[in-house]
Amino acid sequence: MNQILSLISKEFRSEWRQKYALNGMLLYLASTIFVCYMSFNVKVGAIQGLTWNALFWIIILFAGVNSVAKSFIQEANGRLLYYYTLAKPEQIIISKIIYYSLLMIGLTLVGYFFYSVVMGNPIEDKPMFLLTVILASTGLASALTMLSGIASKAPNSSTLIAVLSFPVMIPMLLVIIKCSRNALDGIDRSQYLDQIGTLVGINAIIIAVSYLLFPYLWRS
């Protein structure tokens, strides 16, 4: 447990030291949102809920692929080897998943803020939308962390991460879009609690499978 905490704090510190990466992510998010806003060329609140919702999650998906993908790809080989001598692989993957989930939640919230500023905010049921954001970010980040570990073994990893992650994340994305659409329309919460449950279930599957498989991955 202590080791996990120290690994997470190490991730935070190394992120803070390379501020350009963090700033790059935020700028990426802001400019993507701005590009979407310009290409729709609309006044605030003029696009429909359906488009608003789908576009938001597509932006978040791409931002996630670009930011979380670096979790393993970016690490130098020597440094990874050094971690492995210090900690168990299970601790490494859990700490990475926690760290990148937090990062992803932060990114999504910042993106949500920018997005609402330029595209308007039609969300009716905000607490439920925030819950969806948290669950979605956790799920996307944990799937991407594991997939980036897989992709980092191959030479052309940046293309590979997109190819590997998109089909795996589509089922999750479908549930996410459905949940947030319900929150957007302000539908009675009891109507879609089972969808939230499905989302939690998918997250649990992904995290459990990552936890079980990662020890095999780092040995190679």
């Binding site: 997939l147 089909p167 795996v168 089922p171 549930v175 998918i202 599957i205 499978v209």
Partner: peptide
């Protein structure tokens, strides 16, 4: 294995 687990839902 990972993809199969994601495929089930």
């Amino acid at each position: 294995v990972f993809a199969f687990a994601a495929l089930i839902p």
